[in-house]
Amino acid sequence: MTTLAGTRGHLLFERNLMVYRRAWLIIFSGLFEPLFYLFSLGFGLGHFVGRVHGVTYASYIAPALLASSAMNGAIYDATTNVFWKLRYAKVYDAVLATPLGPADVALGETSWAQFRGLLYAAGFIVTAASLGLVHSWWGALALPAAVVVGFGFAGMGIAASTFIRTWQDFDLVQLVQLPMFLFSATFYPLSVYPTALQWVVRFSPLYEAIVLVRSFTLGTVGWTNLVDAGYLVVLGALGIRLARRRMAGLLLT
């Protein structure tokens, strides 16, 4: 009798579903943050910004906020929650006494983080569309795009969480996450930066994520979007691979 590595990850997902059945309000409340940003910066400040790339400022930042919230949600779940369960709650110690292995844990938690991101993305897209901020039928693909974004960051986040030793190390996660959120052409086009800096920003995974989602909501889809998506998929897959190895090292001593 052999069990394929990673084939029982859905049971971890089931466990999380069981937990949040009672705490759905926590999940639900997460829908609002990107919407608050959209109303504040898109509509409030947008009045003073005018049009960007031929669309209103709200239309311009909506896809960026969608991608950012997919990132933030995935990273939060993949780092804070996983770290807690790994080091304190000992959830995985119990799991590994069963036929499940580290690969199941890594995959199960990634898929959960993504599921949560998907909920937020869906809520945001529906709201943005009803406000007239989605300019093309391609916009329907913004949802699967958000899943790809979530996968990329959840994978990287889970890998990062296996390196975190104390709560104070989360400041290091923030030290990467916040600049990425603020400077990945989220709030203004790349052309604001000097050329050299533009090349640095292009490597930011969030930049790729925003370009991807923005192409769909504004209907400016091209073949290069496959590169954007591919970049995120590869990063996510590398993250999961690393997480699986690290978790085996941390849990199976």
């Binding site: 600049p179 603020l182 709030f187 203004y188 604001v192 930066y193």
Partner: peptide, 13 residues
Amino acid sequence: LYLAALGVGLGKL
């Protein structure tokens, strides 16, 4: 960082 991104960067717009 917020000031640099939103004040300076977004300020250009």
